[in-house]
Simulated assay, not measured.
Amino acid sequence: MAKNQYPGTTFEKTRNRWKAQVRINGKTKSVGYFNTQPEAYAAVLAAKRDMAPAVEAEQLLQSDSDTYRLEIQDSRRTTTVAQSNVLIEHPWAMTLLEARIFVLLLRGLRRDEADSKRIIIPLSDLVGDQPIGGRGYQYLHVAMDGLDAIRIDLPMPNRKKDYHKVPLVHSLKLDSGQGTISGYFSNDVIPYLTNLTENFTLGQVADLLSIKSPNTHKFYWIMQMWKFKSPHTVDVDTLRELTTGEAYPQFADYRKYVLKPSLEELNTLNFDISYTEKKKGRSVNSIEFHINYNGPSKLQPKQLQLQLGETTLPTPVPEQLQPVVAGAPSTFAAA
């Protein structure tokens, strides 16, 4: 068969005219009908020239979409996250939802990355498959405002005189149309999250996303950090500073509302933690922790789902707004 000298043109007997059409990105579009085949072919070429910018833009968007999907698939294969003990030992305040976004941002990093890059989190990874109502988006906005405001004191040679405070993240973006949250870690923070050769701690993504108490997240990272030197003794004031700051000044309250429930939740994972209170006079002044960890729990993705819909999102209460220690990503559990 001879090759068509005028591709995109066909003769329609019912009209006794030549039809011109173009095929763009798998779709055929009619250009019109003409008396001669050369005229129809000229219309095809003109249509292709006119549509070239739009085709190029669509192809670029498709390429970006493919890259996005590959990045998401790659990040979901990550089962552990890490950070320097420097950050764990210098806590900053986070709410539950802020902390969970934080761990999903951590999941998007790769070991030895030197430069910050935009990390994309599908909202489905944060809240499951449930639809997000208006109040849910309000919570997300507040959480992103909170993350954007966090500034970290980084180590300096002379802590009394020197000063180096940096933002944790920047350029946070919630795209409801794409169903994503994205953002960058500060370049000054990146070495404490990726360039880790010693004095760093690993966390299991599934464990961190399953935890329901903000205080448990704080203890998760601390216990992971201390497990290699178990039994480990720490004075009560230091432990309180690492977890709740100035909250619960009375140890009896701290034990009841923070220490015991946090360790009980950790022990439902693959931890086996016990502790001994040590007294100076009549007051408990230090605690000796005995920490065993038998590896990541075998959690299924469905256990990570949260609900932020208008019908299920609870009114915030003080317990949900307790700060979470640095490196303690968490869930935002609906009642």
Rank of each mutant, 00 (worst) to 15 (best):
L269D: 01
D115K: 15
T28Y: 11
V317A: 13
D74C: 05
K48N: 13
K165C: 13
E89G: 05
Q305F: 14
A82T: 10
S30R: 07
N4H: 13
A206S: 14
G245F: 04
M156W: 05
G183Y: 00
A247E: 12
E89Q: 13
R282A: 11
L308G: 02
T331N: 13
Q320C: 03
G203H: 01
R255H: 14
H217A: 12
K165G: 04
K278F: 07
H170P: 03
K278D: 10
A99N: 07
A247C: 04
G8H: 02
S124R: 14
P301R: 08
T95F: 05
S286D: 10
S297I: 04
R23L: 09
P249L: 04
F228G: 08
L269M: 08
L193K: 00
K212I: 09
T312G: 08
I291C: 01
A206C: 08
I273T: 02
G128E: 05
Y163R: 14
K160Y: 12
H290W: 05
Q62K: 11
G136I: 02
T79Q: 13
S330E: 06
A20W: 00
D175G: 05
L109F: 04
A206F: 13
R118T: 13
R23W: 04
R49K: 14
I132N: 01
G26C: 07
H217W: 09
T197D: 10
K280G: 13
Y254C: 03
S186A: 14
Q37R: 15
T243D: 05
Y139V: 12
P261K: 04
S186F: 00
R111K: 13
P122A: 06
L304Y: 12
Q224N: 08
A20V: 01
L263C: 07
Q138N: 10
